[in-house]
Design a protein around this nucleic acid. Structure first.
Length: 569
DNA sequence: TAAATCGTCC
């Protein structure tokens, strides 16, 4: 009795609906298609209803609540229907709904979760910062036998990392029986986001050992870490590799990351060359170059690049202005800084955030306008942020302004945000003012209140490898040479009689020696940057540029024997 | 038929 013709036409009509859906680009149109589906009784046709649901849940033209409505009419929702709902909620900015949908699915227990379910659920856990759900999902994944699934595993790594569980992420990654390039890239990007850049670069070493190649995603992650670690040589290697493999043509990200890397490593001319060579530029491209110039105090160039950006029709955003403000503050252009600070909200409707305020305080402070800086902070609604007071404290130290330094630390204390670094800064001001009592008061404060010191690390890239140092580090294979070199440096400093004959050495040399003495006097535990420098001097030929990066500060110098130490850049 | 990785800001 079933008419073949009828069935055939039914299939044709279903196919037609699906075609309509593919071309559907608005909710209005979607409703019309849905009305037609209902009119012709196709709401239960599996192809049509599945497609309709997933389209509503995940397409830009779709609508989540409409998807829910369709879902609620399914008498026996299958796993893929649940998946569509969870995926849609996760992508649609309501990750908590995705999680509760998953919970309902489990409670009903009529359909089992599959790899897709977990992939979407983990995405939601990452977005919602759902820490405990993240662990719980991990357990469910193991229980239901999906723990060896590559994509589920990769998502789990990401979910843990986005929730701040970096070592858990790493553990999951290590236990994955099968990893693909995306898994490796995810691990690198997790370390990048967590700011653990030396570990990011280490992942690359492991990739090489595992015989895994790299693509533009890998390159972008590694370049970002190179930028933070000052690993210029490795960055140059990636640049070469990217050029040979067409990464630059394929991805704007790679060019942008290269600009950032070169700029942060101090090679502004090479950053500019990459910038000039790019066929296409987006606001990241412009911003990377502007902030690169800004960080290094090239305010005029940053400003003219900003003007060029406007001419090119690219909209500036808050980071463009941050780059400009950094340039102005590092170059003492208070007037220009103020102008752009006002321009950002008046002409571009961009609300300044804490970082912009911090730049302004820094700008006034560096320029010696400490009263103006204080007034500026007091006018802010976010004046309870320690960063602002710390910036003021630093400016007070630069200008030896004891009174303002005390105001700054009082506010930090009031916010219970004062750390050992702050006390050291104020102690420095007391010392310069010849106030020995102030110095010991600071020392006592650190001791009595048990204020924690932030551990300082230093990195140096030698022969393409990034090496990390902590205070008094003896963990390196070259430890002997390092300490030998240090002793050599110290005795040379002594024999040259720096302290006594200051007239013979330039201002720059003098400050370097003061810097050296300060660390040497601290006793047996040599500071991390001293150890890094010693290794650099001991293991590179003369004339090699050495870049030492600290988590607290940055130095550059050239190896030309010991005297090279005086060429601090 | 569904899925996962990328950049500028301290």
């Amino acid at each position: 009795m079933i008419e073949i013709g009828g069935l055939g036409s039914k299939m044709c009509r279903a196919a037609k609906f699906l075609r309509f859906l593919q071309g559907c680009n608005s909710m209005d149109r979607l409703r019309k298609i849905h009305a037609q589906v209902l009119l012709h009784g196709y709401q239960d046709h599996p192809d049509v209803s599945d497609k309709l649901l997933s389209f509503c849940a995940t397409s830009a033209a779709g609508n989540l609540s409409f998807a829910r409505l369709l879902f609620s009419r399914l008498p026996h929702p299958a796993t893929n229907h649940w998946n569509a709902l969870i995926r849609g909620a996760a992508r649609g900015g309501v990750p908590l709904h995705a999680i509760s949908d998953y919970n309902v699915m489990m409670r009903r227990a009529s359909s089992r979760p599959d790899a897709f379910t977990f992939a979407f659920l983990l995405k939601a856990c990452a977005l919602a910062k759902a820490k405990s759900k993240c662990r719980e999902s991990h357990a469910s994944i193991v229980r239901s036998g999906f723990s060896s699934h590559v994509i589920v595993g990769t998502n789990l790594v990401r979910a843990y990392a986005d929730n701040g569980f970096i070592s858990e992420a790493r553990m999951v990654f290590d236990e994955m029986p099968e990893k693909d390039l995306v898994s490796w890239n995810s691990m690198i990007s997790c370390y990048c986001h967590a700011g653990v850049h030396d570990d990011a670069l280490k992942v690359y070493d492991e990739m090489r050992l595992a015989g895994v190649g790299l693509d533009e995603f890998t390159a972008v992650g590694l370049l970002s870490s190179c930028a933070h670690l000052g690993a210029l040589n490795f960055g140059v290697w990636i640049h070469k590799f990217a050029e040979e493999n067409g990464f630059l043509r394929r991805s704007l990200f790679v060019g942008n990351a290269l600009i950032d890397m070169y700029a942060k490593c101090g090679s502004l001319d090479k950053a500019h060359r990459v910038f000039d060579g790019m066929r296409r530029r987006d606001n990241f491209t412009w911003n990377s170059m502007i902030t690169g110039l800004g960080i290094h105090g090239h305010a005029d160039e940053a400003i003219s690049l900003f003007e060029r950006m406007l001419m090119a029709g690219v909209q500036p955003n808050s980071i463009s202005f941050l780059g400009l403000l950094m340039g102005c503050s590092h170059h003492g252009l208070v007037e220009d800084g103020l102008k752009y600070f006002q321009l950002m909200s008046s002409a571009y409707n961009i609300k300044p955030d804490l970082k912009h305020y911090g730049c302004m305080v820094d700008m006034f402070g560096r320029a010696g306008k400490l009263d103006k800086a204080l007034e500026f902070i007091n006018d802010l609604s976010c004046k309870d942020d320690p960063v602002l007071w710390r910036t003021l404290l630093n400016a007070s130290r630069i200008h030896g302004n004891l009174e303002m330094g005390e105001i700054a630390i009082q506010n930090l204390v009031k916010l219970s945000a004062h750390n050992a670094g702050d006390c050291a800064l104020l102690s420095d001001i007391y010392e310069h003012a010849g106030d020995g009592e102030g110095v010991s008061r600071m020392r006592k404060m650190v001791k009595d209140q048990g204020i924690k010191t932030t551990p300082g690390w230093s990195w140096i890239e030698i022969h393409g490898k990034v090496r990390k140092f902590v205070v008094g580090d003896t963990s390196h294979a070259e430890s002997k040479e390092i300490y030998k070199k240090l002793k050599e440096m110290i005795s040379k400093a002594d024999s040259l009689g720096y302290a006594k004959e200051t007239s013979k050495i330039s201002e720059k040399d003098h400050s370097t020696v003061k810097w050296l003495e300060k660390y040497v006097d601290d006793g047996a535990d040599y500071h991390s940057e001293m150890l890094a420098i010693a290794l650099g001097l001991a293991t590179t030929p003369e004339g090699t540029s050495l870049r030492i990066v600290k988590n607290l500060r940055e130095y550059g110098l050239k190896n030309s024997g010991f005297t090279g130490l005086c060429e601090m850049l």
